[in-house]
Computed example of a mutant assay.
Amino acid sequence: MRIAIISTPFIRVPPSGYGGTELFCYELAEGLSARGHEVTLFATGDSVVTCRRQWLYGSPCWPPMPEDEVNHVGWAVSEIAREDRFDLIHVNSPIAVPFTRFVRVPAVHTLHHASCDESSRIYAQHPEVAYVAISERQRSLEIALPRSCVIHHGVTPARYPASVADEGYLAHLGRYAEEKGTHLALDIARAAGMQIRIAGRAHPKDHLYYLQEVAPRLREGGASDLGEVDLPRKAALLRGARALLCPLQWEEPFGLIAIEAMLCGTPVLGFRRGSFPEIVDEGVTGFLAAPGDAARLAALATGLARFDRAACARRARERFSSAVMVGRYEALYRTVTGPRRSQGSRAA
């Protein structure tokens, strides 16, 4: 198949640090290319992929602004329509969905974020698009979509070598934000009497939260802020951690960092909400507590010295490898493009 994938103009592909949507686009584009499909990725000019790529912005537009995304998507779709060579277009933001009416091929949209009224109204106006939720919980919180399925994320296991031993500290990685529970992760580690290493950054809208809730806890000792880390440093941090703390305060649609930790053999400790009941195999790849029960997570953290990290890594590879994810998208694409594609002609 000839597939056009539109990423964002905000972060390069693959991301050098934070960037869930962009990591997904990388894994999907690389996986599809390896299976023999002709993929064109519309991303930033500094993106590094083996497939064909095109860009409007040579470097990421940060902080994210709606006008940059509209420019990026509008340009990408105009290029796709002009070339008139693709079998399918795959978009990754609600803003991109209305633009799909300007191309003559089927469209797939992966929902990367929590439901909101503005996005839901767009989806309702475009029932012809095939929508992919990244968890059953995410789909249940969205409006009813006539054409939808669930495909969990996956990443390349080779980049997350499993470790059968840990270095005794806890970890918390990602965006420093109230909904991510960064302050709670620090409290849980202190209650467990364990060191914690956090890595990530606060987005502009979360800066006050960081100053008021995170920075004072870091000054109390027992914790270190490593800042944003690249993939090698992230993998090393996860491999050495006794557990990854994810005390989420919202209905997280998925949580890529959780499966990255599991692939390293590191269990995930979190609350039973969002996608976590789907992606965490209780007792095998992690442990979940009732929402808000931080004391339970602290107690669990102290009892992981004999956790079977090898079994955790095996289970994560069975469920969350990029090969599993790409295979499911490939099957979806074949369904969406229909019999005309199987007969060797472009969908029109």
Rank of each mutant, 00 (worst) to 15 (best):
L288V: 04
A316C: 05
R2G: 11
D293T: 10
L245G: 01
C246F: 14
R309C: 08
A4K: 04
A144T: 12
Y333Q: 07
T50N: 12
I89P: 00
G31M: 06
H152Q: 06
D68Q: 11
Q195E: 15
G240Y: 08
E260P: 01
P216S: 03
T40Q: 00
R309F: 10
G19Q: 08
G303C: 12
S78R: 07
A171G: 02
E128R: 00
P94H: 07
G227I: 04
E260D: 02
L170N: 01
L256P: 04
G168P: 05
P66Y: 14
W55R: 05
L245V: 03
I134H: 07
Y131G: 06
R52P: 00
A347P: 14
L23R: 12
G20H: 14
H90C: 06
A301H: 00
A202K: 02
Q212M: 15
L297V: 00
S59Q: 12
I89W: 03
F271P: 13
E38N: 12
L28T: 02
G255S: 00
C312R: 10
A199R: 04
E142A: 11
V105W: 01
W55K: 04
Y176Q: 10
T302F: 09
L256D: 06
R272C: 07
P63E: 08
Y18R: 11
S135G: 01
E167Y: 12
I6P: 06
L145E: 02
C25M: 04
K180A: 02
G168V: 09
Y26E: 07
V105L: 00
L186K: 04
P127H: 01
Y209E: 06
E118C: 15
P106Y: 02
W250H: 03
P14A: 02
E22V: 09
R197Y: 05
C149N: 12
L28K: 04
S322E: 11
W62F: 15
F99Q: 08
P60W: 08
L288W: 08
I188V: 06
E252P: 03
V70R: 06
Y209Q: 05
G286P: 05
R317F: 11
Y160H: 08
A289S: 09
R273T: 05
V326S: 13
R52W: 02
G181I: 01
W62E: 10
E278F: 00
E22H: 09
G222M: 00
D117S: 15
G31N: 08
V280K: 05
A236C: 12
Q54K: 10
Y169V: 04
L173F: 11
